[in-house]
Amino acid sequence: MAIKLLNTLIMIAVALSITGVINRTRAMLAGRKGIRFFQHVMNVRLQLRKGSVYSTTTTLLFRIAPCVYLGAAMIAFLFIPVANLEPICSFHGDIVFVAYLLALSRVALILAAMDTGSSFEGMGAAREALYGALVEPALMMAMATLALFCGYSSFADIFSMAQELDTNLTIVLLLVAYVFVIIMFIEAGRVPVDDPKTHLELTMIHEVMCLDFSGIDLAMIHIAGWLKNATLAMIAANAVAVVFCFKWWFAAPLAVLGTGIAIGVVESLRARNKLSRNITYILTIVAMSALVLLIGFLLIQNIEI
């Protein structure tokens, strides 16, 4: 039980710090002094204390949606182990459950965006729905690769078994981690797919869907975003940690620094994709995860023969 609690605490710490690392990296690369490390947490604390403005177009669904968004992200968050620690919940097939919890949170946000009747938010919703649909196979195949190596279909079992893997599979595991990081880019709405700092609502995807949320609702969406990021970042970090050192004190900082710095560097160095290029970009990731799965399959076959 203590281990499970430690696992959750570490996960919360990871969730809180990733955004900080992204901001620091961006500031350093741009030569700015930058905001405080936990400024984003302060912002959310402020939002939690504020009132809200609701659009007259919206229905009750708009007020429930942030709760569903956050609730689903919270539950998904509980399934992820930090390297050799144990997560709170785990069952056979929970990788599918987590993927569909992410879908649940997506549906809640899309419907809330459609509820405002705004053309901008509709635009964001349509894009989010399409990208979400296309990224789903990549997510499933990356998980299938893990299942293929370890013979299990729950996160806890996969990573506990993965330590006995052959060194041949190192490259495949690194590629899996890469795919998860890219999926995180897409799910979190970061460059190159989406730019949260863009100045124009027309070019936003994730941010534009939250235009009409304010106060506690907005805070909930931000918190859920951190949790989702931590979920995907930790899976990626675990895949890497299997190769090098499968200990929680290695995996947790890796999840924070690896993904945080990666996002920060990418956002500083390159511009957002043209929107029409995004589909190609996502399909490339899908193709890549299929390739990773295939390579993994061939390697496994060789080992057995």
Partner: peptide, 20 residues
């Protein structure tokens, strides 16, 4: 979460307006 939000919002100013 929904109930907590409702409770917290009781003491806040909740206004309605057109969609942004």
């Amino acid at each position: 979460l929904f109930l907590l939000k409702r409770r917290a919002q009781r003491s806040r100013t909740i206004t309605e307006g057109p969609t942004w």
